[in-house]
Amino acid sequence: MDLITPAVGLVFWTSLVFIVLWVLLGKFAWGPITKAIKDRESSIEESLRAAEIAREEMQQLTANNEKLLQEAKNERASIIEQANKSAKGIIAEAEAKANEKSAQLLEKAHAAIEAEKKSAIADMRKEAVSLSVDIAEKLLRKELSQKPSQDALLAEYVKDVDLTNL
């Protein structure tokens, strides 16, 4: 029955050694070790959370960038469209103006031509008159160079003169 009879000495030494071990390890080993493990766990947890936040921020940033890019693209498209539109407008306007101008020019040219034509006709008429006068003069000179004819003419004039008014 020795086997199942606790020996006083061993009970004493076990209590003493275990309690001393408990106190020493509790104070110098378990405290620092479990604290270190806990600190590390919380720092890992924190890092993971921070990484998650960073990832979300990154995602948001990327989304923002994409949005910006899209906006820029849209803006570019609209600018191009507007430019195209205004270019077309300018061209059309210019065309219209040119047309108008050319019409005006044409009209002026027509007017000038008309005026030239008129003055030319007038000139021609004047020339024709002076020519006919010259011819008539020459004819007259020739006619009046002989005495009978001069007398005849004179007679005629005299006949025509109305002496009544004298």
């Binding site: 061993l10 030494w13 076990t14 050694v17 275990f18 001393v20 071990l21 020493l24 390890l25 110098f28 080993a29 378990w30 405290g31 620092p32 070790i33 604290k35 270190a36």
Partner: peptide, 19 residues
């Protein structure tokens, strides 16, 4: 018993000092 206590003290004190 004492030997095991010493072994435990040596092991865990050195581990604690590492941390």
């Amino acid at each position: 018993l004492m030997l095991s206590a010493i072994i435990l003290l040596v092991i865990f004190m050195s581990v604690a000092s590492h941390y």
